[in-house]
């Protein structure tokens, strides 16, 4: 009984994670300027990471794999937002101001 619940929960999390990854990918491609695209990309790096990795942890149970997955999650959640921040900061300092009117991708 418990196993079925855990299974369903983990499949649900994995599916939602997959959907989030896809949405973020489409957003990275389609959104109009750099900052909005950064927003979409960082969605896949935090939310989707948590959903997919927690889904896999539920499947793995209490094993060494779970510890490794937790470590991967911790490092991803530390580094990915840092990278996004560093990137946004670099773009801002180079005079690329976030402006909803300006659309640089009309190709």
């Amino acid at each position: 009984m418990i196993e079925t619940v855990v299974d369903i929960l983990s499949w649900f999390l994995l599916c939602t994670g997959g959907i989030f990854v896809l949405i973020g990918g489409i957003g990275t491609l389609r959104l109009p300027d750099f900052y909005t695209r950064l927003h979409a990309a960082s969605l896949t790096e935090t939310m989707a990471t948590i959903l997919i990795l927690v889904g896999m942890i539920l499947q793995a149970g209490l094993t060494l794999a779970t510890i490794k997955l937790l470590t991967i999650m911790a490092f991803l959640l530390l580094t990915a937002p840092t990278a996004s921040y560093a990137l946004a900061n670099a773009a801002l300092q180079s005079g690329n101001s976030p402006n909803a009117q300006q659309r640089d991708d009309q190709t």
Partner: peptide, 26 residues
């Protein structure tokens, strides 16, 4: 079109690789 977009894409590619490797391992 800007360099930042490319860096963003590379960074995203990196995290996606981490996730892909983890999922494929399972």
């Amino acid at each position: 079109p800007t360099v930042y977009d490319r860096v963003l894409a590379v960074n995203m590619f990196g995290t996606k690789t981490v996730l892909l490797l983890a999922v494929i391992a399972f």
